[in-house]
Design a protein around this nucleic acid. Structure first.
Lengths: 213, 213
DNA sequence: GTTGCTTAGTGGACGCTGTCCACATTAGGC
DNA sequence: GCCTAATGTGGACAGCGTCCACTAAGCAAC
């Protein structure tokens, strides 16, 4: 209702603007309605462009969706990293290391609860455009799995986790937290009451701590 | 290509036939393409009826989808029950009880691997038509959660699982197995090799055993 | 046995979607 | 200052879910 109406047909936008706008619009659609709500025409409407313009930037709707999924996954990782950063204590300190792992799980569950649409979207990458975790080499891996691994490594370093049990333990832990998020979010447990949900989440985190000792 | 063409326009079908046919067709669509592949018009085509006929049996597409989801969940439960039944050993026998729990997890993961479309559909119930686990009262609960609970109760009975740790432990266990199925199926871990996947699954089941002792 | 009500299926339409095509405009390198 | 590639437009198409009015089949009561 601003520039779109004042300048009825400004044919050209700044370079890369439309593409970024489409992704941003897609993210908002995903936020409020999950992956199925990411509809190409709606995104172009939000940007103020004709539907076909999207095809100058994406091969098809799936490619746009893949980009949106990637953005959603990034937001999840950002929130996890923020929650980790909030935990005080030197690296290698046993208590701090344990609290950092707890912060990871809590942030994950919180994201799934507060942003169900984005959470579902983050894991709804279309088959053709698999989400490649764009490994930036030496830079610290700011993906959910990368953050989890770092936390587990710190637990070993702090002497909390037996090095012999370290190998591959990220997968059951990730699965446990993810499963809890899915079942209580969109899954069969979604109708549980607030107290029940908190109890289930608490049990999940306790289950992890139990398995490390 | 049989009766549909021979009798071009037999207005009436046996009572309840169309409805059951639509659900069956929906299940097949879900089997090969997940919940999004359950398209109303396609189901009616399979039954040999005009699209609107579906609206005599379902309020809308979501109601049909909910029925298909329920059927998919039943199929999962059936496979779990079958795998449990295959385990020899008297009820209360510690080893048998443990193997029955393992059979549950294995059947769950196997179903997710062999029938990814149905597995995804089973947990994709539309918001309006929540899946109510139609509790038949005294009859044994043949839902996935019911079967898991029974197995855990038997573990307590057999003295393998400390009764104090029994309460609510079904949720982390379910979450763990479900999370593994989702992450390795449609999720970010889907591109892992076969050996990696088997390793992850094995670790998942070991993780459970580890947590019970 | 005719009457009338309920149920199940038909036919046509609407608006929405993703996608394809041909065309117009603009930006930037030569 | 022109040529070419990039970008956006306009119009179209098929497929989707869904609504409406209509019709035919079955069933009950008289």
């Amino acid at each position: 209702m601003t520039a779109a109406e004042e300048a009825p047909r400004s044919r050209r936008r700044p370079r890369g603007d439309v593409r970024a706008g489409l992704v941003a619009a897609g993210v908002e659609l995903a936020r409020s309605g999950g992956p199925d709500a990411v509809v190409l025409r709606e995104a172009t409407r939000a940007v103020g462009v004709v539907p076909n313009a999207a095809y100058r930037h994406f091969a098809d709707r799936d490619e746009l969706l893949a980009e949106v999924c990637s953005a959603a996954m990034n937001e999840l990782a950002e929130r996890m990293a923020a929650e980790i950063g909030r935990v005080r204590g030197k690296r290698g300190n046993p208590s701090a290391a344990q609290r950092r792992l707890g912060a990871i799980g809590a942030a994950y569950l919180e994201f799934a609860r507060d942003e169900p649409g984005l959470f579902a979207t983050a894991f709804a990458v279309p088959q053709q455009h698999a989400y490649a975790g764009r490994d930036t080499g030496d830079a610290p891996d700011r993906t959910p799995l990368g953050l989890l691994r770092a936390a587990l490594d710190e637990l070993v370093e702090a002497g909390v986790l037996d090095p012999q049990r370290r190998d591959g333990i990220e997968y059951p832990i990730w699965s446990l937290v993810h499963g809890t998020a899915v079942l209580t979010g969109q899954g069969p447990l979604r109708d549980a009451s607030g107290v029940e949900l908190r109890q289930i989440e608490a049990r999940t985190l306790a289950f992890i701590g139990n398995s490390l000792a």
